[in-house]
Amino acid sequence: MIRVLLADDETIIRAGVRAILTTEPGIEVVAEASDGREAVELARRHRPDVALLDIRMPEMDGLTAAGELRTTNPGTAVVVLTTFGEDKYIEKALDHGVAGFLLKASDPRDLISGVRAVASGGSCLSPLVARRLMTELRRAPSPRAEASIERTALLTRREQEVLGMLGAGLSNAEIARRLHLVEGTIKTYVSAIFTQLEVRNRVQAAIIAYEAGLVKDTDRAR
C-alpha cells in the first residue's frame, strides 16, 4: 500500500486529488494538511511514502516544507503540485530534492502514475510541464546550458542516449525496449549517469538533458 500525504490550502483541490487517489487500488491518503508546517508535522507522525505539496501555502510554503521533509523524512518522496504560472519555482524545487512536478489540472492517470513512480524510487514530470520546459529552453537557453553540455560531454555516447530518453520521460523499461537491452542494464546506465552528473533523481537529470540538447521529440513516449 502506497501511503500519501496531501497538502494544499484549497479544500476543493484536496478533495479532488483525494477522490482520484482513493479510487486507485494500492494507494491510501493517510493525512491532509492545509499548510506546509502542518504537512511536516503530519509527515513525522504518519511517515508517508509520498507527499503531494502545493507550492503556495500559508505558514510554510511547499518548497520549504520539501526541504524540511528531506531532512526529517528522507524516506518520503515529495511531489510538487504546480501550475504553469509557477514554472519559475522548478529550479528551487530541484534544490530541495523533490521527486517530481505535477499540474493540478493533470490527467488523473498522470497523477496516479506519478505517485506510483516516485513511491518506487523514480520521479515524475507532467507531460505538459515537460513540454513547457523544452519550449522555454529552446527559446531562451538557460545560463547553465553551457555547463550542462560540458557535464554531459563526459558521458559515453550510450549514456547520453539513455539520458536523452530519460529526459523525454521514458521509464527504464521503455528505454530498454527502445535500445533492445535488458532493464537491468538500463538501471546500471542510469546509476552511472546520476553519479557522473552528481544528481539525486531523474527530474534533475532530465533538466540537464534538456539544457544540453539531448532530448529529441522522437524520443518521447508514444
Rank of each mutant, 00 (worst) to 15 (best):
R56M: 13
S113W: 01
V118F: 07
A105Q: 13
V40W: 07
V78P: 10
L42M: 10
R109N: 08
S113M: 10
R56D: 06
D107Q: 02
S106L: 03
L63N: 00
G97T: 04
R116L: 01
A43C: 10
E86T: 06
K88N: 09
P74Q: 05
R56N: 14
V50E: 09
S34G: 14
A51G: 11
L69K: 07
V118I: 03
G85F: 04
D35E: 08
K104V: 01
A66N: 02
D107C: 00
G114Y: 05
T72R: 13
P74L: 03
G85P: 11
D49C: 07
R47Y: 03
S34D: 13
R56I: 12
L63D: 00
M57C: 07
V118W: 10
P108E: 04
N73K: 00
G114D: 07
V98D: 09
D107M: 00
P58K: 04
R37S: 12
E91Q: 09
L42F: 05
R37Q: 15
K88H: 15
L69G: 09
G100R: 11
V98S: 11
D87K: 07
N73T: 13
V118H: 06
I90G: 01
T64Q: 05
D87S: 02
L52W: 14
G67P: 12
G75Q: 01
S113K: 09
L42P: 04
T64E: 05
D107W: 01
N73I: 00
D54V: 13
G100L: 11
L81V: 12
D49L: 08
